[in-house]
Design a protein around this nucleic acid. Structure first.
Length: 242
RNA sequence: CCGCUUCAUAGCGCCCAG
């Protein structure tokens, strides 16, 4: 079954859900029983191509099978699907349904909702959820940081970036990326440069696009010497220019 | 008895042109 699951995931990631369903049929006829991973993979495949309703139907059908009960991952995947469509009330409904059937949402579930609220333009609601969550990880913080940056609240974002480190949560390349593009959009290039430096000091190799955004800003401001210095640092740190 | 392989979350289309 694991081999089939792997093949199925490949098809789903390529957006070919219909082929994935053929694999399901094939499994059923050859002694490799589909398991909960099989169905979760299908749900994800459907949600990826905006067929969230069908994904939810697969989830419902799982109830009838033994050893294939819907799990946190099943519900969370559907919630993600609705969040990506901007249907936050549908997402919340699924959350409630999950709780009613006795399944506990986990950190991933909440992180997805945080991002959903932010991207739907409801940073306040994300903030409320963030405050109620019992634990946070680097994804929770990065999601909120990105949310604040996107609405021009880089101050709040930086506050969170400090707070996470006080709690012992280490920013990663995603965190820096969100923060740096936030600063670049506001033309706070000095801040952006500082963060790039801090990141390098921590041994994190930045992505090319992060340097490109900063270099562009610096160059346009006419400060070619500084641009050159950053370009050097970029290469020294192991980030390949394109 | 133990371990490995398959499922869900965050950052960027940045230069040029328009």
């Amino acid at each position: 079954s694991i081999s089939f699951n792997i093949m199925m995931k490949g098809l789903c990631n390529a957006g070919n859900v219909d082929e994935a369903f053929k694999v399901l049929k094939e499994m059923e006829g050859c002694g490799c029983d589909p398991d909960y991973v099989t169905f979760n993979t299908l749900i994800n495949g459907l949600c990826r191509v905006s067929r969230v309703e069908e994904g939810f139907r697969v989830l419902s059908e799982m109830r009838g099978r033994k050893n294939c009960r819907p799990s946190v991952v099943s519900y969370t995947t559907v919630i993600l699907g609705y969040c990506r469509e901007g249907k936050l009330d549908e997402a919340v409904k699924v959350l409630e349904e999950m709780v009613e059937s006795g399944d506990k949402p986990n950190l991933v579930t909440y992180n997805i909702l945080l991002d959903g609220f932010c991207k739907a333009g409801n940073v306040k609601r994300a903030e409320g959820l963030f405050g109620k969550m019992v634990g946070h990880d680097v994804v929770s913080y990065t999601t909120m940081i990105d949310g604040y940056c996107k609405v021009g609240q880089t101050g709040e974002a930086i506050r969170l970036m400090n707070e996470m480190q006080v709690k012992g949560i280490v920013p990663n390349v995603y965190t820096y990326s969100a923060m740096i593009s936030g600063f670049c959009k506001e033309n706070k290039l000095g801040e952006a440069v500082c963060l790039l430096e801090e990141m390098r000091e921590r041994g994190i190799i930045g992505k090319t696009f992060m340097y490109n955004s900063v270099l562009d800003g610096i160059s346009k401001s006419g400060n070619l010497d500084q641009a050159n210095q950053i370009f050097e640092k970029m290469r020294e740190s192991g980030c390949k220019p394109n």
